[in-house]
Simulated assay, not measured.
Amino acid sequence: MAPTHHFHLDARGHSVTVNIHGGHRGAAELLVDGKETGRAEAHGSQPLILTGELPTDPPLPVTVRITPGPGTPRCTAVIAGAETVMSPRAF
């Protein structure tokens, strides 16, 4: 069974989480406040981009870039032009 990786960021009072499911048919999902807002299939070692919005007034776009390993992937979130590395999270 391939590993699953989790990343988290608190941004402007909202929870931004990325779950990356490894394996032959891997996928990544972006959750904002626990609700899925973006999803993409993983294709080998190619980087992924997920997009969503923070439910602020007005809504703020969120872009997450996932760079696969070797080893643990790396997730970077861009919100309002500011780039932040997301912290790995154990579940």
Score class of each variant (00 low, 15 high):
T51V: 14
E36M: 12
P61C: 10
S87P: 09
A28F: 06
G13I: 02
V64G: 08
P58S: 00
P73D: 02
A2M: 06
H8V: 11
G13H: 13
P73V: 01
G23T: 14
G44W: 06
H24T: 15
G71V: 07
T76K: 11
P55S: 00
P55K: 04
N19E: 15
G26R: 04
R39E: 09
T4A: 11
P68K: 00
P61I: 02
P59L: 07
R74H: 04
R12G: 13
T4M: 14
F91Q: 14
E53D: 15
G34S: 00
G22K: 08
D57A: 10
N19Y: 08
G69T: 10
T76Y: 04
G23I: 05
T37D: 03
A82D: 11
H43P: 14
Q46D: 14
R25V: 12
P73G: 13
P59I: 01
L30Q: 00
A2K: 12
E29K: 10
P55R: 02
E53M: 06
T63S: 12
A90I: 14
D57G: 00
T51I: 06
A80C: 04
H6F: 07
R39I: 05
G71I: 04
V16H: 05
G23E: 03
G69W: 07
G44V: 14
V18R: 04
L48R: 05
A82F: 11
V85T: 13
P70H: 13
N19F: 08
L9T: 01
R65P: 00
F7A: 08
G52P: 03
E83H: 03
E83R: 09
R89I: 05
G44F: 14
M86V: 03
T4S: 02
R65N: 06
G52C: 03
G81R: 08
H8R: 13
T56I: 02
A27S: 11
G22S: 03
H24E: 15
T67N: 08
L30N: 06
I20Y: 07
V16K: 07
G13F: 10
D10N: 14
G34P: 03
E29Y: 05
V62A: 04
A90V: 12
G38D: 01
H14R: 02
V18S: 08
D33Q: 10
D33G: 01
H6I: 04
P59G: 00
V32F: 02
V78R: 07
T84K: 05
S45D: 11
V85I: 11
A2R: 09
A80Q: 12
V85W: 09
F91M: 08
F91H: 15
L54M: 02
I20W: 11
P88G: 01
V85H: 12
D57E: 10
H21K: 13
T37Y: 02
R74F: 05
A28Y: 08
A82Y: 12
E83N: 06
I20M: 12
H6D: 01
C75F: 02
E41L: 13
A82K: 13
S15F: 12
G38I: 09
